[in-house]
């Protein structure tokens, strides 16, 4: 691409038209990111039921399937209200990330000899990698606890949340995998939970300083909360 020949303008009306622009993809990243952040937070809080014992966490698992009952059929709200919207949010998040990564790689022309980063942190520069690691982990995690694929979790018993998590997290390679994945998620959230404010233009000198604090606290709480369960299983506190 030369500096004198821009590609044709792509501005089209409608929400899809906005998404076609790079800024539009950033809005989509931020909005889907908010939804995914709310999910990981709720997931983390839900996990803590494991400390209450088998009955409570299994009951919590069943309660999620029974959400909306008796007004709605069993698992309907779980699918329509949570799983499908989450899958859509994830798909949008991943597609926007993929498209923007291609744009950004095309926009570059070689790297510098001895680049010195002054502001960009470890978390912001590894977003692509932590994102991919989290996505790969998600596939494992679903196979492990949701689908109960035998090669991933041989002792899986449908509905026995407590037994399943012990059976899986007792194995030290799986334990290590979960810790690493939560580290990646934590780094991703560390940057993402701040970045989303900038992308959406939520910027005001009155609260700007708190945006970074919010992201750090949020990432710490989510990662910390998540890792307590595998650590507790390894230490025998759960089990």
């Amino acid at each position: 691409m030369t500096a004198t020949q821009p590609k044709p303008r792509t501005s089209r009306p409608g929400l899809l038209g906005i998404y076609r622009s790079d800024l539009g993809k950033k809005y989509a990243m931020a909005i889907s990111g908010v939804f995914l952040l709310l999910f990981v937070f709720a997931h983390m809080v839900g996990n803590l039921h494991a400390f209450e014992g088998p009955e409570q966490i299994n009951h919590y698992g069943e309660a999620l399937r029974e959400l909306g009952e008796p007004l709605l059929p069993r698992t309907m709200l779980l699918w329509v209200g949570l799983r499908i919207p989450l899958a859509i949010a994830l798909a949008v998040h991943v597609h926007a990330a993929y498209a923007l990564t291609l744009t950004n790689l095309r926009a570059r022309s070689g790297s510098y000899d001895g680049r010195n980063y002054l502001a960009a942190g470890y978390a912001s520069r590894t977003m692509r990698w932590t994102g991919v690691i989290t996505l790969l982990f998600l596939a494992w995690h679903l196979a492990d606890f949701t689908w109960g694929i035998k090669t991933v979790n041989p002792d899986y018993v449908r509905g026995d949340v407590y037994g399943n998590l012990i059976a899986s997290l007792e194995r030290w390679p799986v334990f290590a995998l979960y810790l690493m994945a939560m580290g990646a998620l934590g780094l991703h959230v560390w940057h993402g939970a701040w970045s989303l404010f900038q992308s959406l233009g939520i910027n005001n000198p009155r609260f700007n300083a708190y945006r970074r604090i919010f992201a750090i606290v949020f990432a710490t709480i989510v990662t910390g909360g998540f890792v307590t369960v595998p650590i507790a299983v390894q230490l025998g506190i759960i089990g």
């Binding site: 821009p6 744009t103 950004n104 095309r106 912001s124 977003m127 992308s199």
Partner: peptide, 9 residues
Amino acid sequence: SFFGSCTNH
């Protein structure tokens, strides 16, 4: 049309 996109570094 000329440049990349912001990742808030």
